[in-house]
Amino acid sequence: MKNFKFLFAILALNALLFTACDKDNGDDNEGELITTVKLTFTEVGGGSTEFTVKDLDGDGGDPPVADDITLKANTAYTIGVEFLDESEAGHIHDFTEEVQEESNDHLVCFVASGAISAPVIGDLDGNGKPLGLESAVSTGDTGTGVLQITLKHLPEKTNPEPCSTGDTDVDVTFLVTIE
């Protein structure tokens, strides 16, 4: 008889748990998406220009739109990279700081071809390994080229080719003209 009282107790308890587990109508937090990658090219000792890739409607729909980068020939630049969510008009989320905070888990990679050479990473993560939010490049003669920028999450930074490890959060390509 005791056993059955126990069984009933369990069932009664379940009934309570059960109803408690109903849908919690929380806010629909969809998480944030990176919609915009902003590059700021600053001429050493001179002014700066911004170039962006934007995909404001997220995956699908309209494809991302990239500015063409125009740089001066034979000039040294520093490059700053920013990652933003601009999907809500008038409400910009900046994720650059988050990348900076978790610098050990992130890496910005650059691949260049044509008239531009790959920028050299200038900043370091918490372990003294490259991070890539800040970098530098010196242009040569006039011409055109392509600059690809990827943001890697959890790369193996000790790997001889860290950019081919980890997973990709951002992968954008700019056309570059050197005048």
Binding site: I34, T35, D59, G60, P63, P64, D171, V172
Partner: peptide, 9 residues
Amino acid sequence: PVLTIRGAF
């Protein structure tokens, strides 16, 4: 393929 900010899919 579909182009996104994370690359092509």
